[in-house]
Design a protein around this nucleic acid. Structure first.
Lengths: 202, 202
DNA sequence: TCCGTTGGATAGTCTCGCTCTCCAATATTG
DNA sequence: CAATATTGGAGAGCGAGACTATCCAACGGA
């Protein structure tokens, strides 16, 4: 297909497609002549992935680039690759330290694995710091309700990955992490609403 | 306290504090003389709230303003106020339509309350659209694992609100929604990691 | 007394994410 | 076959957002 079709089918303006190509996020189409280049279904899928991360999740393009780079070149350790890939998603923290006291304590009490190289540890530490600063309860007992629910969810989510190659697993896991998060958060808010409305109605 | 102390205790640069005051997000201190103004603990709390929403959650200042406005002037219906307040948090959607087919179907099957005025409905619809576009499973059975977990979490979270006045409840609910979300997401990622590492170790 | 700090206003800066303009070459249409 | 439209590609330009730097007159502390 030509660039105008690619644009129509993805909903991304032609000028923006060109911009993504220039930025190296989307490969150039196969050049047929000076005024023709052919784009494949793979280009479309890639473009939709970029749009999903950038528009739906609101990732800055620099983060989208990071995620794409990890998808393109997963290294030998798929767990480490996955860790870095989901680390590119919000909330953004600089993993500059190697000691995360709040997160370490919480993770220990909750029976999870503490690995300072995994970005989620820094994210948790930062989130707990913010809770404390705002005067909300950040102690392990209050966190238990979240960790129990999340372990259950995580176990069900990982089941489909059992039969995948690592080349398939990384984009799947990144997309899944990125795109199910808003679903989960919306359902939490809807559950609050449901409980409040129900409580008032009676 | 003076502005320099306010700045130190909050970690926000003086120039930025001035900027927030100019933008009307933070009230001016009580003017004592041409070169002195007195800031209270409430100013500090407000500033920390702004910093939590803007820095930790990465909200655009326009959204922070929306949240603050709702905290400052909750209207007569606390549930509607709460709905609009959490609607100011990401993910951002314009609630322009009044029909959200995917969300409506999912909410119906999951036994929740469908209310098109509640922003989370639009957020869910958008999130499901993105899932479909990416080829991931957005059907109600796949969503069940999230809704079950979220209902359980939501019920435990609402318990402390029973004894609050509505003036207390709105900021509490907004802050809680905003600040526990990253905790929950980090724990989900940690649970994935834990399960993967554990599975590999054996 | 005198230097450093303060509150307050204005203008400047930097990044991001496009979007606009241009161009020559090629398709398409009448 | 001529006239017109469209294409791929490159560069510069732009508008929003969020600060940040400069300036200034008026204090206040040593």
């Amino acid at each position: 297909m030509k660039i105008s079709e690619l644009s129509e089918r993805s909903g991304v303006p032609v000028a923006t497609v060109k911009f993504y190509i220039r930025e190296g996020m989307l490969p150039r189409g196969e050049v047929l002549s000076t005024t023709r280049a052919e784009y494949s279904e793979e280009h479309l899928a890639r473009l939709r992935l970029i749009a999903a991360l950038a528009d739906v999740r609101g990732l800055p393009l620099s983060r989208v680039r990071d995620v794409l780079a990890l998808i393109d070149a997963p290294d030998d350790d798929p767990i480490a690759t996955l860790g870095r890939a989901v680390g590119a998603l919000p909330p953004y923290v600089e993993a500059d330290r190697d000691d995360y006291p709040r997160a370490r304590a919480a993770i220990g009490e909750l029976g999870l694995t503490y690995d300072p190289d995994f970005t989620a540890v820094a994210q948790l530490d930062e989130a707990l710091r913010a809770l404390e600063a705002a005067g909300l309860d950040a102690a392990p007992p209050a966190l238990r309700r979240y960790s129990d629910a999340m372990r259950q969810v995580a176990a069900e989510e990982l089941a489909p990955m059992a039969g995948m190659s690592r080349a398939e697993a990384v984009p799947y896991a990144v997309l899944g992490t990125a795109l199910y998060e808003p679903v989960m958060l919306a359902l939490r808010r809807l559950a609050h609403h449901h409980l409040l409305v129900e409580g008032r109605g009676r």
